[in-house]
Structures are given as C-alpha cells and as structure tokens.
C-alpha cells in the first residue's frame, strides 16, 4: 500500500483546475449532456423515503423528460435496501439498473455478519448493484487487511450484482489515502470505486475523482481488469458534470466514457442536465417549473 507513488496535493488540484477550463460547446455539449444523463445514478437516501417517493423517482429515471422522448433514461436508481422492492417493480425489464446502498450505510460501523445480511437482502429483493462502504476506521488505523477482507466477503455476498465500493474520500484526509484505498478496493474485487456516501461534509471533488481515475487506469494497465468510477454527492450542475466528463476523457480515456464505467451519484443534477438539454434544443433558457421535482 505504501509502495504506491504519492500524490502531490497542489499538483493534482492544479491539474483538475486546468481540466475545468475546457470549453465544451454546441454539438460536444449536447453529446456530453446526453452521456451525463445516461450516467446518472438517480439517488434518494433519506430517512423519510417512502415507497411512493421512490416509485416516483424510478418513473423519472425511466423518462427523465416526459416532454421529450429522445431524452435517454438514467443509468440506475439508488435507494436504501428497504426501498428496493418498490423500485424493482417500476424498473423491471427497463434496462435501468437498481442500486442499493448496503453494509450499514453510511457509517459502515456494524458487524460483518450484519453487513453481509444487508447485502444479501438487497440483492434478493432485486438490486443488481450494491454500493458498500468501507470501514474508514479500520483503514485509517492501518488495518488494511480488515478492509480488504470485508470487501472480499461483500463481493461474494453480492453474487451476480455489481459491487461499488464507497471510499468516503472526505474522511480519508489525503490524496495518498484516496489512491491507497482505490487500489485496496480494486485488489479486493470492486467493480466500481465510488467517492462518497453524500452523508459527510465533503463529498465528491474533481481532484479526488482525478486520483481515482488515475488509479483505475493504472490498475487496468497492470492487471488487465477495468474498474468503474462513481463520484457521488455535490455534483449539481451540468457545468460540473461536463468537467467530470472532460476529466474522464483526458485521464482514463475513451474506454471509461460510458455508463458501464462511469456514473454520477446525484439527485438534483438530473434536472439541471434536463434544463440545459432543453436550452440547447430550443435555443432559450429553461425554467425549473417545466421539469418534474421527483
């Protein structure tokens, strides 16, 4: 773990800032918006979530812009395990994935058996993607073996479901740790590495995502296995989303520019993408009342 090359904070942040200055216009922007919509994991992770609420969300995932049939569906709906059955009904046969956070989300502070049961239940209820959290406490205390073993066990519990491993980068403290946690998760079998739960003050940032993209790129070069990346939390505007896509394109490359390999964990982002999409189609600025709030 400590043999991985370091990450210079100032350098990586400068690189992310430079990538943010890319100017994506006209046809490229239209392509980017549709791609970003297709990459959204439309998410609700609230204590107040109800079956009514998540069904509405799932409906929106299938037809984000009811007024425009050319608008693509999102990649997935992401909910708590208890909400999975309700969402599964709506999504069945649509091709939109059903992701569920599991493993004592968001803290990860539960016995392994509880985490595994959580995972199995979600999969049994119809989730085909599991977003697990790593034990940051174990990671920060240097007990990498513990973190690794947990991921391996959860991966096994997932069965056919894809495993996204949430590193909770906002709690890791350094970019060096982000890189180490990324490699640890990939070695343990993660299909995706994901930045954040959205439940701590610092969620996804562009430099953190850049470091993770470098990690998946290097991991594939070394092992031949491709792993996806999912920034989650804090990405609210089309402008932000495009910065992420530019970063994907210029860091990991073309191969990652697909919903199979890159996702946005977001809720409000979708409506901004839809508004910008409408602006490009109609030529005038769109208003929020014309898009559903689900």
């Amino acid at each position: 773990m400590h043999g991985l090359p370091g990450v210079d904070k100032v350098g990586v942040e400068a690189r992310a800032a430079a990538l943010s200055t890319r100017s994506i216009k006209t046809t490229s922007k239209a392509a980017a918006i549709d791609l970003a919509i297709r990459m959204v994991d439309l998410t609700t992770l609230e204590g107040a979530d109800t079956t009514g609420k998540v069904r509405a969300l799932a409906a929106k995932a299938l037809r984000p812009d009811p007024a425009d049939p050319s608008c693509p569906p999102v990649a997935a709906v992401c909910v708590y395990p208890a909400m999975v059955p309700a969402v599964a009904e709506v999504l069945r046969g649509s091709g939109v994935h059903l992701a569920s956070v599991a493993t004592a989300f968001p803290s990860g502070q539960a016995p392994l058996e509880v985490k595994l049961a959580d995972t199995r239940d979600a999969v049994a209820a119809g989730a085909d993607e599991i977003d697990m959290v790593i034990s940051r406490g174990a990671f920060l205390s240097g007990d990498y073996r513990h973190v690794y073993d947990e991921i391996v066990a959860v991966k096994e519990a997932c069965g056919p479901a894809h495993l996204k491993v949430i590193l909770e980068t906002g709690e890791l403290g350094t970019y060096d740790n982000v890189r180490r946690a990324s490699w640890l998760a990939m070695w343990a079998g993660a299909d995706f590495i994901k930045t954040s739960t959205g439940k701590v003050p610092v969620a996804a940032t562009l430099p953190v995502t850049l470091v993770m993209l470098e990690a998946v790129r290097d991991f594939r070069a070394q092992t031949g296995r491709q792993v996806g990346v999912k920034p989650a939390g804090g990405i609210r505007t089309t402008k932000d989303a495009i910065k992420y896509l530019v970063t994907v394109a210029e860091t990991a490359g073309d191969d990652w520019l697909s919903p199979d390999w890159f996702r946005f964990g977001a809720s409000s982002l979708l409506n901004d993408l839809l508004m910008q999409r409408t602006k490009l189609t109609t030529g005038h600025y769109a208003g929020p009342d014309y898009f559903t709030l689900d």
């Binding site: 890319r22 100017s23 994506i24 216009k25 006209t26 046809t27 490229s28 922007k29 392509a31 980017a32 791609l35 896509l245 394109a249 073309d254 520019l257």
Partner: peptide, 10 residues
C-alpha cells in the same frame, strides 16, 4: 460529433 472531439470554442 462525439463529445471527445470538443467542438471549436473560439
């Protein structure tokens, strides 16, 4: 045009 080609932004 693919997103990657970056349309001109003069």
């Amino acid at each position: 045009m693919s997103f990657l080609d970056y349309a001109p932004a003069p």
